[in-house]
Design a binder for these strands. Structure first.
Lengths: 255, 255
DNA sequence: TCATCTCATTGATAGGGATCAACGCCGCCG
DNA sequence: CGGCGGCGTTGATCCCTATCAATGAGATGA
């Protein structure tokens, strides 16, 4: 296709897989160009540490593919997974000194990175960039408090069901067609699930197999499930509100 | 005292008790004047609802005196306290539709309020206002994730000790003098403490009296404690990191 | 002043889930 | 190909803490 008159040169960002859904797409063209100039990709393998806990934050960025996990640990080694980051999520903390949590690759990942100080300087010139960050930070805060509700007063089966619904919302809904069963890919290990849900791998395993026995899900393998009864899954989560985030066609089979 | 030549007229904000420590003091004078013009005080009595869960957010603001609690609930009535707001903390969510949690008066409170839409328009004209909000939102996010760590993988005694340390940091340190014991005022009920810590009132009570038996604290009455052994309290919390927030003189007796 | 109500405390009991242990499965590598 | 190590599963046991119940203490109001 011919470039339009006065069209800008294409950047590597124009071919980016997450361009449409990420922060980059919600800012003006000038800023997109600046961001493009600043950005560079990095890749990490499953298990690698992107940013250590209590480490100086030298860069921030956006997840292009794969999954990141954020985790905190106690001095004695106990760990808590405090969040997962999927495609097009922003990672790393701006305007801060040391990272309050580690960021690790929960799968092989590709990240689009910005040197932190440069990115911060950009927010000074472009308030809309800071505004977009603000919006996503507020969403993360809501999500964190939602998780506090889960950790503070829900039972383990409820937590597992809630977690699966969260996965549906964040990753699963795109490739679903009415009539078929919704399939869920769990991108993390049992150990990580347990850490995220404040329980143990053994208990997770028991609960999942119990759900399978009840016909709520089908276990294809340890990472792939199929939802057989969405209504039951939502009921089990005790979180009608979580179904709000599902696409409407999926929600329809849940209620 | 004579006003300086060209000095601006004093506003009610200049006499505000939290002026020095709040967001207002960290922005330019022009913005301070705008904020002053927009602000009005409201008072609520213990137990009153400031903003309901799932309610449209019509105003935001700053806590002048007293304590607010933020809480979320499940459909079946279970509740989780997801945060406490003290003097000079910002409350309410900007750039959002419905409130994700209720905000209630945990004591009699005085709030400095801004009509939400007007406040948001102000952030468009003054990026530094949004920046200050951004900084406090990031801090809240860190705090929320810290609490996830507590709820997800700490025992009840650890949680109670951590909670008391948090209170020391947020409220207790100002009126402490070396030599005296640090006194802690607990501004919320056992039920609220329990909800904040993901446990029950009965368990809280047992743990506190056990701490008293061990000589870590002295119970003046159900709301007032005295720290007899800060080192033990920190150890009990399993959170050396929480002592970082204490003033250095207090930290010194802890380590 | 006494009745009443709420909140905190204390005791007894039961249950959910952590812990410990063993086994199966699978990918990796010598 | 066979040993090995990590992960997931399953079983047995124990303990922490939720729950139920009763009492005490302080506040409120008639």
């Amino acid at each position: 296709m011919e470039p339009l008159p006065f069209a800008r040169a294409l950047t590597h960002c124009d071919r980016c897989a997450v361009r449409k859904s990420s922060l980059c797409n919600r800012v003006c063209v000038d800023l997109q160009e600046e961001l493009s100039r600043l950005s560079h990709h990095r890749t990490y393998c499953l298990g690698e540490t992107v940013l250590g806990e209590m480490e100086a934050i030298s860069f921030v960025g956006i997840v292009v593919s794969g999954v990141l996990r954020m985790q905190k640990s106690l001095e004695d080694g106990r760990q808590q997974l405090v969040g997962l980051l999927f495609q097009s999520d922003f990672f790393g903390r701006v305007f801060g000194g040391l990272s309050a949590h580690a960021i690790e690759a929960a799968s092989d990942v590709t990240l689009c990175c910005y040197e932190r100080r440069a990115f911060e300087r950009l927010t000074e010139r472009f308030p809309e960039l800071e505004h977009q960050l603000m919006l996503s930070t507020l969403d993360e805060l809501d999500a964190a408090r939602n998780w506090m509700l889960l950790l503070g007063c829900q039972t383990t089966p409820e937590r597992v069901a809630s977690f699966l619904l969260m996965l549906c919302r964040r990753t699963g809904t795109n490739q679903w067609t009415p009539g078929a069963n919704l399939s869920i890919y769990v991108p993390i290990s049992r150990r990580d699930m347990a850490s995220y849900l404040g329980t143990t791998g053994e208990t997770i395993s028991r609960v999942i197999h119990e759900m399978s026995r009840k016909g709520i899900i089908k276990i294809r393998n340890s990472q792939h499930f199929e939802v057989l009864n969405m209504r039951q899954l939502v009921k089990m989560s005790a979180r009608e509100d979580l179904s709000t985030g599902l696409s409407s066609s999926i929600r329809s089979i849940a209620l």
